[in-house]
Nucleic acid binder design. Structure first.
Lengths: 186, 186
DNA sequence: TTCTTTTGCAAGTCAAAACTTGCAAAAGAA
DNA sequence: TTCTTTTGCAAGTTTTGACTTGCAAAAGAA
């Protein structure tokens, strides 16, 4: 009974497993079950767990096209677009980004997967640089600026996820951006 | 030949292994070798890998006494003391904190270990709250404020560690604190 | 010296989880 | 219908890594 299998469904499940259990903790058997697919099928389609995860991450990063980091001249709008995309794309209360940059980095099998995320960050940095040279943002290493913008959001999600019992409210994005711009103009 | 074994040496090695490979990736065999101790000894002394890690984390958090989060009335000085302690205590270019709050959280065996870190964060929050009520910091959820202070530092370390080839300079702590205070006064 | 404690070493056990293989069944294409 | 492709199922193999056990050797205490 060759079922029609949609890669996207499998990728969704894979990402969820990744967020919930990490790379080592995401079992192919559980992914298969959750996706309603046999484990064998996973291996036949993707070859290995690492390749499956790589494909799933690429899929998840799909919404982040270069276009999203374009310069429009409106700093607040550009930042808001990116941040909201970022926030929405993770949806769940955890983040792929810290996971990629701290956990995934350790697995040589996933080396190739990192190019995408790095290029995103780099594109973001370029946008920042442009606003800096325009005088709309204080001069500093662009990735420091990116960190200042994303860091608080990431930590917030991290803490919220770490102990759901401690009620830490989510960060208000609009307010955060306004405050960021205010604190980073020169 | 009962060698004299210092727990601290083993804990150091364990923390390093943890930072380098994560909990799942830190092999007891490798920890034993790196510490110059037999694997059997580890199990005899600490019972299990989880208990060893728990002990090592507690050891690593030792410098953070409640006293470090005391209120002196000098906001800049208090923040600086904490941040520098934080920065120095990790020493290496990675951070235990994000690791604890994102990876360790997943291992039920380590549940008990989380109380310490959470209480640190909480103490920090209380200090923030006090400065807020004094009017020296803008009112917002104290853990948001903590995130705004630590987030950029953590992201910086994370990126620097993720790809040592991309030269991202470390953040200047003094400047960061000044800028933080400036951006968070009301 | 003698007893106790602590360690190392060698050689395991055990379980989990990634990955494989052969066969049968179903859907779609020709 | 017939052939090809894709899937599931059952039952593997293989590796790895946590954890154990028995025995001998060394240090310190009494």
């Amino acid at each position: 009974m060759p079922k029609v299998i949609h890669d996207e469904d499998i990728f969704e499940v894979t990402i969820n497993a990744l967020l919930a259990h990490g790379f080592a903790g995401a079992k192919t058997k559980e992914i298969a079950e959750a996706a309603g697919v046999s484990e064998v099928t996973l291996y036949r389609k993707y070859g290995s767990k690492a390749q499956l995860v790589a494909a799933a991450i690429n899929y998840q990063l799909r919404p982040f096209e270069e276009n999203n980091f374009r310069y429009t001249g409106d700093l607040a709008a550009d930042l808001k677009r990116i941040i909201e995309l970022y926030d929405r794309s993770t949806g769940r209360d955890i983040d792929l980004f810290p996971q990629i940059f701290s956990e995934m980095v350790r697995y040589p099998e996933l080396k190739g997967t990192l190019a995408g995320p790095f290029s995103l960050i780099s594109n973001f940095g370029k946008l920042i640089t442009r606003y800096q040279s325009e005088g709309k943002l204080r001069e500093q290493h662009p990735l420091h600026t990116v960190g200042a913008l994303l860091g608080p959001l990431i930590i917030n999600k991290m803490l919220r996820n770490a102990d759901p019992d401690i009620p830490i409210p989510p960060i208000d994005l609009e307010a955060h951006i306004d405050q960021f711009i205010d604190g980073h103009k020169r």
